[in-house]
Design a protein around this nucleic acid. Structure first.
Lengths: 236, 236
DNA sequence: TCAAAAGTGTTGCTATTACACCCATGG
DNA sequence: CCATGGGTGTAATAGCAACACTTTTGA
């Protein structure tokens, strides 16, 4: 298409309204048997100082995925993080200052690996999911939808590797699942189910901090896990 | 918040780029044992004349849901239609003429109820899902994601009422499910499964067009169906 | 009368649940 | 030496898939 023509088209589209488009990130972490949420005090009016999701505007030449990754990198120091889009939120009154259409994301990060300095610099804090403060605008709604999406994902694929460290015991993995699904799982049955997927490799190291006997550390076999369709793990 | 302050904020947001935001609708219908898709020839450049999803821009004071409903109403004459958001599509190069962020939706409509005149007026046509033409931009991707979402929904809730007429036989419902999931279901097992949900009411009328014996018409008990969590119907 | 769909019943298998029980060991 | 989590085994059950079989009636 030549420039002349392109100019014409832009004029054609031009009769329509343009909108601010932002991304808002629900950042999940996990530590001490609890699912956590990384929240930020909003740095400008309106709602300045109140807790909000990590957000930012989508710029000229980046996709929403790229915008979310850029903002996450800038504020946590982490790249190559698992992220997934939740949905778009486009109520014209969702942001009281101006119309901003937001695309919601959730991210899973290993709390022990992030850059604490950077997080402090922005005043961010980790909250237990169940004890999070009220958030600004529709961020509570975004957060709840994000948890639902996370549960869906965790129901079909093991989410251990994204939230735990490289090596973990099956009890740690079970507690993570208990945190995500807000229910308990039978230790024996959970172990059998998870091992039957054949995506975990047992190391010869043991963790002795959580029990007298000591529990073997497992790690994720990434290649095997890629093979699609390991089927439903948790029935909801 | 006073106007003075508000003005200031808008200026604050103002440093960021604004974007065109559109909605694109994957319109599913069902007739003659086939899942159908309603497609439109694009009315302006670029890609003028090529097949595309039904789309339109999100205006100043409407949500994306409202925009989708408005556009659907305008082009099919139908209101109160089941619609669900698929996801946002925000690749900066997805539309070759200008950057347009699109929010994808899918809709389920009863083919026999729509306004045929209106559809003709726009040159739209129904295509069997499996024999649809190549679509413009990323509309094929939107379409595939929409089918996945539809399958997810149909796996947990009966989608009969949205796509069939008020009264339907269990065989008709089964064929609809076979079309959605692109596989066959055992007639006996499907019947038992569906009836066990207790959301269908048998009428005393029979349909005699499809078999010698005649099959009872069923209708949907809307109140019962609203009760959340009828559980997984189809395991995928 | 018989093909073809409607509708019911039976059977075998698999996945899930609940729970019993042994193991190892730090306090 | 015993309480605690690690780890294995098992019996009861529920859900599902496969398919046999019976009913009805128009062509």
């Amino acid at each position: 298409m030549n420039t002349e023509k392109k100019k014409l088209l832009i004029e054609l589209y031009g009769e329509h309204t343009k909108h601010y488009v932002a991304v808002d990130c629900v950042i999940f972490g996990y530590v001490d048997g609890e699912l956590k949420l990384l929240l930020y005090p909003r740095s400008f009016e309106p709602e300045k100082g109140n807790w909000s999701l990590l957000g930012g505007f989508v710029q000229e030449n980046e996709s929403a995925d790229e915008a979310a990754a850029r903002i996450l990198k800038k504020t946590t120091g982490l790249g190559h993080i698992f992220m997934e889009q939740v949905s778009a939120f486009a109520d014209p009154n969702r942001d009281e200052a101006a119309r901003v259409i937001s695309i919601g994301y959730y991210a899973l990060i290993r709390i022990d690996e992030h850059d604490e300095e950077k997080i402090k610099e922005f005043g961010a804090e980790w909250f237990p999911f169940g004890k999070r403060p009220k958030l600004i605008f529709d961020h509570d709604e975004i957060t709840e939808k994000a948890l639902t999406k996370l549960q869906q994902k965790a129901g079909y694929q093991l989410v251990g590797p994204e939230l735990l460290s490289e090596m973990f015991t099956l009890t740690q993995l079970r507690r993570l699942y208990e945190a995500i699904f807000q229910r308990t799982f039978d230790p024996g049955n959970f172990r059998k189910k998870v091992l039957s997927l054949e995506v975990l490799k047992r190391s010869n190291k043991k963790d002795s901090t959580e029990s007298k006997k000591g529990a073997f550390f497992f790690s994720y076999i990434h290649e095997k896990a890629q093979e699609k369709d390991i089927g439903r793990i948790i029935k909801t």
